[in-house]
């Protein structure tokens, strides 16, 4: 789920940071620029891994800062398509189940990728997997928020975010999530971890599961 990405950038170190070592200021500046941000078609940047190359520093006319070309490697969150991840349910809505990993929230499991058959429970605001029992009856498995869930990444989408308006004005465009993941749990073994923990006991021990749901 994490990858290293090699990047190249020109870093501008302002004069007040000249007393620090160049590596130190570059590390700080790169982390300030990239940490916790999504880079288009790259993923969510977490932290600087290492600096592989520091080029010559230049001073440009009219600017007292030094400009240095650096090559570096950054730790990036970018799960592979088809990867299995474990997250927590953030909320359920008509669109599907929203999953969070703590540091990354924009994961949706759409309705058509839930276990079949599922229904949305309006009173509990939760999706329910109507697990068919052998005797033709069905057994309701609730997907409550906060539960751990195992899912497969099925697709990803990057959205170019528009620059926000000047501070103080309200004309900011609607904020779109820059990086979205779509997951699926419509395979055996996927879904809440508790569903699959003791498969052999599932049929006999229905009461146990019920207690957790209520």
């Amino acid at each position: 789920m994490f990858v290293l990405t090699e990047m190249k950038d020109v870093i501008r170190v302002t004069p007040e940071h000249f007393h620090l070592s160049l590596t130190e200021s570059i590390t700080t500046l790169l982390n300030r620029k990239l940490a916790n941000k999504v880079v288009l078609n790259i993923g969510l940047c977490i932290a600087l891994f290492d600096i592989t190359d520091i080029g010559h520093s230049y001073i440009l006319p009219g600017d007292g800062s030094s400009h240095t070309e650096v090559k570096f490697r950054y730790i990036v969150f970018r799960p592979v398509i088809e990867e299995i991840l474990i997250g927590k349910i953030r909320s359920c809505s008509r669109e599907g189940v929203h999953v969070t990993l703590g540091f990354f929230d924009d994961i949706l499991i759409p309705v058509n990728a839930l276990q079949h058959p599922s229904r949305f429970d309006e009173t509990d605001q939760a999706w329910v997997w109507e697990y068919p029992k052998e005797d033709g009856d069905k057994h309701d498995l609730f997907m409550d928020s906060g539960e751990s869930i195992r899912f497969r990444i099925t697709s990803e989408a990057f959205e170019e975010s528009l620059p926000a308006g000047p501070p103080g004005t309200e004309c900011t465009g609607q904020t779109v999530a820059p990086y979205k993941l779509v997951g699926g749990i419509n395979e055996p073994g996927l879904g809440l971890l508790s569903w699959w923990e003791a498969p052999e006991q599932d049929d006999g021990d229905d009461n146990d599961v019920d207690d957790n749901d209520e």
């Binding site: 789920m1 994490f2 990858v3 290293l4 990405t5 090699e6 990047m7 190249k8 950038d9 880079v39 078609n41 790259i42 977490i46 090559k71 490697r73 730790i75 970018r78």
Partner: peptide, 17 residues
């Protein structure tokens, strides 16, 4: 800013941690 290689290496959770 430029990307040289978007997938230079995989890191496992342990390494990131």
């Amino acid at each position: 800013m430029e990307t040289i290689k978007s997938n230079a290496a995989f890191l496992c959770n342990y390494e990131v941690m």
